[in-house]
Design a protein around this nucleic acid. Structure first.
Lengths: 234, 234
DNA sequence: GGGCGTCGCGTACGACGTACGCGTTGAGTA
DNA sequence: TACTCAACGCGTACGTCGTACGCGACGCCC
């Protein structure tokens, strides 16, 4: 496991050429530009002009490195302080998480799980929970609201991210071969899946994906409003 | 890419010992019992008593094999036909998806993306869309409602699945080494993240996880009800 | 019975994660 | 100032992975 305390300290020796900073940044750059599979110890080391095995002074394993990357990138999604308008605040927080996910699509395969929180994921969590604080929710309510929102946002953003990855992979492949009709095309002709065909093909790109996300986010927020923020009206 | 038509056909030669069925089943068994990383071509082949390279007669690559696994397992989450009570139907469908995800935790890293639908994922999609049909929703509404629900369910179930994986990995590790306090413990003492500490530690296991999921699912369904099913009441 | 498409798989290669241990460096101590 | 020693960077090497290539065996069709 990652030793977060050690990772937070600046450096042990002055002559240190490497650092958690440098390594994590390089790994994120490699992942962003060439995909998560390209994040090999050799490639990351080469990217910063270091020897492969030098990375192991800072990281126990490749999996640890990826944990470090996820935590570092999660800090990009820290929400701004609450303004008092819970709905606007949560909307902003949700859009930030989505944007970070689209900027780093590999997150979709290694998103935070509550078991290895690092400083970055914890800061993001804290900033989001702060948006829910002070509206009369008890601890259990806050946890429910936070988890409901985060689950939707991650589920949606991850699906978008994977779609982009798949589209890009398809584009890379079609440079060398013929595209050919997808199974969905064949299935559409067979008429075996009428609803799926209609839903997935008739409305492929009607609007900005951001607006689509925002509209669906609104439905989730409506549900949270009803459960937690409009109790006195009922 | 996977050739779904070929995969659906029974067999080309009568003397065929292998099949998509046998291979996909074996791969799923290996993944369920030893994790997705254990799904190597050699291990899967050995599990069915075949040569490693024989698998490549049916599958283009390891990634293709995993795509096949995901599609096969998705079929386990096909929803029963609609009863007329949309809320009960969607609740049942959501719980099925969650249960399939917990049964196959590796799904959390390779969930369906809309770009490579196979027969299994398509059947699951069709069965879920059928639950929304006939309630006055147009195509766009159905897509929104379906995507909102699925995003939440996947986001939540995937987080649960990963938590189980992490907990198990932690248990395996602690057999040989000392557990040691997590970063969350240290952070709790520092008082830097008061809300996270309270939310994540004070209410760790209050109830059955299934009930927790159901409660949060209720909030999402409330939002969908308001947007799509109670328009005439407003 | 001769040709041919299908199937199973053995061999081999490059890339990977990483265990191990060596040489170097600079801060701390006397 | 001289010595010590932990921290650091990294070269080598091993086992495992995905998979390209091609060969032999089988069964169907003329």
């Amino acid at each position: 496991m990652v030793n977060w305390e050690k990772a937070a300290q600046p450096a042990k020796a002055a002559r240190a050429a490497l650092s958690y900073e440098v390594i994590a940044t390089a790994a994120v750059e490699v992942a962003d530009s060439q995909g998560l599979d390209a994040v090999t110890m050799r490639k990351v080391a080469e990217h910063i002009g270091a020897g492969t095995m030098s990375l192991y002074r800072y990281v126990d394993s490749r999996d640890d490195l990826i944990t470090l990357m996820v935590d570092r990138v999660s800090a990009e999604a820290i929400a701004p302080p609450p303004t008092g308008d819970w709905r606007a605040d949560l909307t902003e927080a949700a859009h930030r998480i989505r944007q970070v996910t689209l900027r780093h699509p590999w997150l979709a395969r290694h998103a935070l799980n509550a078991e290895d929180f690092g400083p970055g994921t914890l800061a993001m969590t804290e900033s989001t929970l702060a948006l829910l604080d002070g509206h009369g929710l008890d601890t259990g309510d806050m946890l429910d609201a936070w988890r409901t929102l985060l689950s939707f946002v991650q589920g949606h953003a991850f699906a978008e991210a994977r779609r982009h990855e798949a589209r890009q992979r398809r584009a890379d492949e079609s440079e060398t071969g013929a595209p050919g009709p997808s199974f969905l095309d064949k299935a559409a002709e067979s008429g075996e899946y009428p609803l799926s065909t209609r839903a997935l093909r008739e409305a492929p790109r009607p609007t900005d994906p951001r607006d689509t996300f925002d509209r669906r986010l609104g439905h989730v927020l409506d549900g949270l409003a009803q459960a937690f923020f409009e109790r006195d009206r009922r």
